[in-house]
Deep mutational scan, measured.
Amino acid sequence: SEEELEEFAKEVLRRGITIIVNGIRITEVEIFVKVLREILEKR
C-alpha cells in the first residue's frame, strides 16, 4: 500500500544504510527512488 511505501521511505531515510548490490555500493534511498520511479512509470 502507499502507506507502507511511505513508512519504508521514512525508515530508509532514518537509517541511511549502504548495502552492496552486485558488488556496487548503493544506498537504500537510491534503490527506493529507483523502485518508486518504476512503479510510477507502470501506472
Rank of each mutant, 00 (worst) to 15 (best):
K42D: 07
S1P: 06
E38I: 12
L40A: 04
I17Y: 15
V33A: 02
I17A: 09
T18S: 09
G16S: 08
I17L: 12
S1I: 12
A9V: 09
A9W: 14
V33C: 11
E30L: 12
K42Q: 12
I26Y: 04
E41I: 11
V33W: 10
E7W: 13
K10M: 09
L13W: 08
I39E: 03
F8R: 03
I19S: 01
V35N: 02
K34W: 13
R25N: 08
I20N: 02
R15N: 05
V21W: 15
I31L: 09
S1R: 09
L36C: 06
I39W: 15
G16K: 06
G23S: 05
F8Y: 09
E2H: 11
R25M: 08
R43L: 15
E38S: 09
E30Q: 09
F8L: 08
E7I: 08
E41N: 14
T18I: 15
E11F: 07
E3F: 14
E38R: 10
T18H: 12
S1Y: 13
E30S: 13
E28W: 11
E3A: 13
V12Q: 04
I24Q: 09
V12P: 00
V12N: 00
K42Y: 09
I39K: 02
T27W: 11
L36Y: 03
E28P: 03
F32R: 01
K10G: 03
L13F: 15
T27G: 03
V29I: 10
E11T: 09
I39F: 14
R15H: 04
L40W: 14
E6K: 12
I39P: 00
E41C: 15
V29E: 02
V33K: 04
R43T: 08
K42E: 08
I39D: 01
E2P: 12
R14E: 04
R14W: 13
G23T: 05
E30K: 11
V21E: 00
V29D: 01
R37V: 05
V21S: 02
E4A: 12
I24T: 08
R43I: 14
E41G: 12
K42A: 11
E28M: 07
V12F: 11
V35R: 05
S1L: 14
K42M: 12
L5K: 02
L40H: 03
R15F: 08
V33F: 07
R37G: 01
A9Q: 02
E7K: 12
E30P: 05
K34F: 11
K10W: 09
I31W: 11
I24R: 06
E38W: 15
I20Q: 04
L13D: 00
E11A: 13
R43P: 05
A9M: 11
E3K: 13
G23R: 07
R25E: 08
E28R: 08
N22L: 09
R37Q: 05
V12L: 15
V29K: 02
K42W: 11
V35P: 00
R15I: 03
V33P: 00
E6R: 15
K42N: 10
K42G: 10
S1H: 09
R43W: 15
E38L: 14
E3L: 13
R14F: 05
E11D: 08
I39Q: 04
L13M: 07
I17T: 07
E3G: 11
V33M: 12
E3D: 11
V29M: 05
V21Q: 03
L40Q: 03
E30Y: 12
I19Y: 03
K10V: 08
N22S: 04
E2N: 12
E30A: 14
L40M: 08
E4W: 15
E6C: 15
E11G: 08
I26V: 07
V12S: 02
V21Y: 15
I19H: 00
E7V: 07
